[in-house]
Design a protein around this nucleic acid. Structure first.
Lengths: 335, 335
DNA sequence: GGTGCTCCTGTAAACGATTACAGCCAACCT
DNA sequence: AGGTTGGCTGTAATCGTTTACAGGAGCACC
């Protein structure tokens, strides 16, 4: 029978009221009389009416959705954050659009494309290396940075990266290690830089030896961890412990050295960063710095919603605590 | 200056043409005269005009987005699939909305909510256990199932699950194993069932011993793999090899038994399923069945787009090939 | 009885695009 | 010259809501 989807007109006719009343019943029930409200709701029920989001959004000059702009969607690191974002957005009627900054040709255009497209009421940016220039476009929606951040005063949600690095290195020192290396994240990334300087500063603070060839270039990926392992193996004077800027690199490193018969933690100790789920199931289970990813997502979504509702482009930032998770990848060295 | 975002009216005024011409220039450039086109494009440039997607969608009776309904967004298994979906959707101007079937209270309502919301032109469903009843709603958009599937004739994209199981078990048999166990996925899941029966049938085919206590209940998670390991350890008569219905369970199992000093593959051989990235970096690297996840996403998106453009609710299905990836987690047993 | 409230509801104008339809003009043909 | 054609453009209706504004009903108070 009802081939077509009912519109607000149909409901109005069915209930014998005007469309305005139907609309009000649905959005601000308190202003319509009890009897009318019931009649309308009954009509809604009978017609199977569902509000047309597109029309509603057009009229209300909003889109009802938020874009999460992720550097690489295939990276599982983000999925849990997305879950956190969605858990906040969905209950209040916002949809989550995801987009990949790697897809497509020109990076600059893409960011401004998303900003100006009017496809979303707000943007969650996970990539701190994007050009800032498009962010100055006049009618742009509010933006919040998650995980990474820029030097500008854009609001952001991030974790205590420097403190995480410090926790990791301090732990290694406390376990008696004196030769501590580091595998970095990609160059030019704020996370890499912050964790690296956290590592450097902690060692300086305790006046411990630092050597350039104990710092290995990585890019957060497992493969880069494995590559670092090759470098480490070739070293004459190897550090006895490594702080890895990501769990994935720690996994890659560990797999590669174990393949060569090197034992972890007896021959080399490792501390990771992130506490992704798998590292607890490795053998040895990886000692690491925990980042609460769900919480990052939730906070970012919440702060962004605040900005959207307040209609402002500026907002507060938030720092999420990190925590050292001790497992079995660090050996105690007698001093 | 330009505080407000330019509308098509502004462009029309600026270019000295009607809004219709502007619209045509942007959607079907071939029908407008060269000179006009240039004038319009220049005006677009000057005003910084971006088409308002909401208004366009309302008029065209579409939404320009597709919903991916994932059982658990935090599960990294899906992120690569989402990337595949997006890589197809984005170039043709569709957005990807992601939603979690676990969020919120009533499952039944949620699916029908998404179906009727009119928020999307199509739906990609990753959960084969959802109730089918809402799928009979009249004005619903096209739906495609990915990975999992239902007994109905909904179009789907899936991998060769039975063949994957068969490849895994056959490989173990060829390596000389005669006592082969299995860790299953969650009960009631088609993937679990199909992989389990693939396992059973392959063993039957070769007339090999099967024992109920060699089949361990799992749910695809690492924890459930670790739990299976405990059961396996308590067994008097242990299978020498296990086919795990997911890589994650294989990881959990391997971690747990290695923790007890059991060696893989010398003491127990393992084959996983999925080929998630991390398993290549484990030690030993896991032998597994590869599912091309990006391809699953791409195909699902492509088939769904076909249905959307054709305006039909029925479509073709696609089966993606699997492949055995031999690594180091299976020992050869002298026979 | 008139005035002023309060409560509720209806009218109608937006929101910003797309597109069927019609009209205009120039060129071409007979 | 008149008719036809084809290429291009403009007019205006339309998509389905929301909401400012106005209006009517009922009531109380002076």
């Amino acid at each position: 029978m009802d081939k077509k989807i009912a519109t607000i007109q149909d409901v109005a006719a069915e209930a014998g009221v005007s469309t305005a009343t139907v609309s009000r019943t649905l959005s601000k029930p308190s202003v319509v009389a009890e009897a009318t409200r019931e009649a309308v709701l009954a009509a809604v029920e009978r017609t199977g009416y569902r509000i047309n989001a597109t029309a509603s959004n057009l009229r209300r000059q909003r889109t009802g959705s938020v874009i999460a702009l992720v550097p690489n969607l295939a990276n599982p690191f983000f999925s849990q954050i997305l879950a956190g974002i969605n858990s906040v957005l969905h209950p209040v009627g916002y949809g989550l659009l995801v987009a990949d900054t790697q897809a497509g040709p020109n990076l600059d255009d893409r960011l401004s494309g998303y900003l100006q497209s009017g496809m979303a009421d707000g943007l969650i940016l996970f990539d701190g290396t994007l050009p800032v220039e498009p962010l100055t476009t006049p009618g742009r929606p509010p933006v919040i940075l998650a995980c990474e951040w820029m030097d500008d005063d854009l609001p952001s949600v991030r974790t205590e990266n420097a403190r995480g690095a410090s926790l990791a290195v301090t732990h290694l020192l406390e376990m008696g290690h004196r030769h501590i290396g580091h595998i970095t994240g990609p160059k030019g990334n704020v996370l890499s830089q912050t964790r690296l300087s956290g590592y450097v500063e902690t060692l300086s603070l305790h006046q411990h030896e630092q050597r350039d060839d104990w710092i290995f270039d990585g890019d957060f990926s497992m493969d880069s961890g494995a590559a670092a392992a090759q470098k480490w193996l070739q070293l004459k004077d190897r550090p006895t412990a490594l702080f890895c800027a990501s769990d994935e690199m720690a996994i890659g490193f560990m797999g590669a050295v174990q393949h060569q018969g090197i034992r972890v933690p007896e021959d080399v100790s490792l501390v990771g960063f992130d506490n992704i789920e798998v590292v607890g199931h490795l053998s040895p289970a990886l000692t690491t710095i925990r980042q609460r990813r769900t919480q990052i997502g939730e906070q970012a979504a919440r702060l962004l919603l605040d900005m959207i509702e307040a209609g402002t482009l500026t907002g507060v930032s938030e720092i999420i605590e990190v925590e050292l998770i001790c497992r079995d990848s660090v050996a105690r060295i007698p001093t």
